[in-house]
Amino acid sequence: MSHTWKPVFVVLAILAAIFIARTIIVPPKFGIWESGYMYGWHNKANEQFWLNYKAKYKGRDYCNGCHPDKYSAIMNSPHAIIQCEDCHGPAIDHPDNPPKLAIDKSRALCLRCHVKLPYPTSHRNDLPGFLNPDEHNPGIECVSCHNPHSPVLGGMR
């Protein structure tokens, strides 16, 4: 074989190897799809991965299935706008997994809304809250006196 042809065959062999490797590595559903060449170039099978991702927050109607007493208590209170899972944590597969939810009873949780921030153009300014929460029973959890399911003064524990 002429020495001038050898590199040509080497290049052809490399190209063939790249082509074969590409057909093996690139997933079969890799293509352009709906959003066109610039924005839609992807593996279609990956959309299924995100569709199948497990939802962890179930919403208050799920809680109502077993805890209608707690549900109706908070739904008839000024805290009706707050979802159960905001404080109780995501239900996931409760009661199977986890069997018991880790409730956030910290002062910090209540203070997310109930520290008064005097911002005239924000709804935060309208919420009842403390300008200086450290002056009101510091170190004690709010829920030891106040019932978050009935936060009016008549609902004090």
């Binding site: 927050y57 979802q83 899972e85 905001d86 995501p90 997310r112 809304c113 921030l117 153009t121 924000s122 709804h123 935060r124 919420l127």
Partner: peptide, 12 residues
């Protein structure tokens, strides 16, 4: 206007 900065959305 409605956001009060409670951060419940970020936690969730």
């Amino acid at each position: 206007y409605k956001c009060v900065g409670c951060g419940m959305c970020v936690k969730a």
